[in-house]
């Protein structure tokens, strides 16, 4: 299975999927930590993948969505953005709505 298939499987089988540095208990980057805090504050049920332990995905995920930085959030199989966008959406109440929609679907 190539890296795009692996990524495709991860985002299609997890309604809320975060590619990050570290994990939810020990984020290894402030932006990844902020992403976790925002997901937690939404009460999201989510999966994470630690790119520091998977170099193929660390590189592949940047090409997958033509997005040069990590973290990256996918909801309902769609790319949402990084931690700045998550913060903006959260301030507008949109992140909560998006996650709720996915998790009640």
């Amino acid at each position: 299975m190539d890296v795009n298939e692996r990524i495709g499987n991860l985002i299609s089988s997890n309604g809320v999927m975060l590619f990050m540095k570290g994990d939810r208990r020990f984020p290894m980057c402030g932006f990844s930590g902020q992403a976790i805090q925002l997901l937690e504050s939404c009460g999201a049920v989510y999966e994470t993948l630690n790119v520091l332990e998977d170099d193929e995905i660390r590189q592949g995920i940047k090409a997958y969505s033509s997005w040069p930085t990590i973290p990256q959030l996918y909801v309902g199989g769609e790319f949402v953005g990084g931690s700045d966008i998550m913060m903006s959406l959260h301030q507008q109440g949109e992140l909560q709505r998006l996650i709720k929609e996915t998790q009640t679907a």
């Binding site: 570290g22 290894m28 980057c29 932006f31």
Partner: peptide
């Protein structure tokens, strides 16, 4: 918005 603190990652 302010940036989050670094958590010491790689």
């Amino acid at each position: 918005d302010a940036s989050p603190d670094c958590l010491g990652g790689s």
